[in-house]
């Protein structure tokens, strides 16, 4: 489902004398449907960078990166938008939404974007919010005013609203209590069971051990310092 070969990335800082900073080289990785791969490595090793490249958020410098057959490094914006809408979900650590939009609508949006009937989309959103223990009185409010843990759970609900065939999870259990952590892990297991290919970053080692089938240390892809 996700096939990465010899992927590299560098940043060119034009406003700092044109410095070129290589951050990744030779990244190779495959994730099959129903498989969960955990990215490991120290902070700054490039875990999030790799995730962002898979999502099309960062441009690759070289190599290939296929998600569901689409080479993200060469795809048009339109193809990436379609990929994100239909195939590839992303639960980031931060919730970025239009202020004022009620939580219920934030969670239902991925389904509405797919053209699902509003009734179905909102029913699904409410099921997820309930599962994730977001009090019903908050559903009509914008999540921008919520606590960090609540925002994270809204973000997860949104990421799981549609059954994406591929999922990127960036610290899905961070800042969650034991009860909600368990809910999220069960959601991840459910996604695997239905055949989703998952790449995740988990600092929570117990969680990683429970859901990940393999671990990839991204340090391997870090360019040697000042060779």
């Amino acid at each position: 489902m996700i096939e990465i070969e010899n992927l590299s990335k560098s940043f060119t800082l034009h406003n700092q004398g044109g410095a070129v900073i290589p951050v990744m080289t030779g990244a190779t990785l495959r994730v099959a449907p129903g498989e969960c791969v955990a990215l490991t490595g120290q902070s700054g090793a490039g875990k999030s960078t790799l995730m962002r490249m898979i999502y099309g958020n960062y441009l690759a410098a070289g190599g290939s990166l296929r998600v569901g057959g689409l080479d993200v490094t060469r795809a048009t914006p339109r193809e990436i938008i379609a990929l994100r809408r239909e195939t590839l979900g992303y639960v980031s650590q931060f919730l970025r939404v239009v202020p004022r939009v009620p939580t219920r609508a934030v969670v239902a949006e991925p389904l509405l974007a797919l053209g699902r009937p509003a009734e179905e989309a909102f029913a699904r959103a409410e099921t997820l919010l309930r599962e994730l223990n977001i009090p019903e009185r908050l559903w009509g409010l914008s999540p921008t005013t919520f606590s960090g843990g609540e925002q994270q759970r809204v973000n997860i609900a949104r990421g799981f609203a549609h059954d994406y065939p591929a999922l990127l999870l960036d610290e899905p259990t961070a800042s969650l209590d034991a009860v909600n952590r368990e809910v999220v892990l069960r959601l991840i297991e459910g996604a695997k069971a239905r055949g989703a290919a998952i790449i995740g970053i988990f600092h929570d080692e117990a969680a990683r051990a429970r859901v990940a089938d393999r671990e990839i240390d991204v340090t391997e892809f870090t360019p040697r310092k000042a060779a």
Partner: peptide
């Protein structure tokens, strides 16, 4: 390019 890509990984 894609909005978030241009804003998060600007090239020019």
């Amino acid at each position: 390019g894609l909005t978030d890509q241009v804003l998060d990984d600007p090239q020019a």
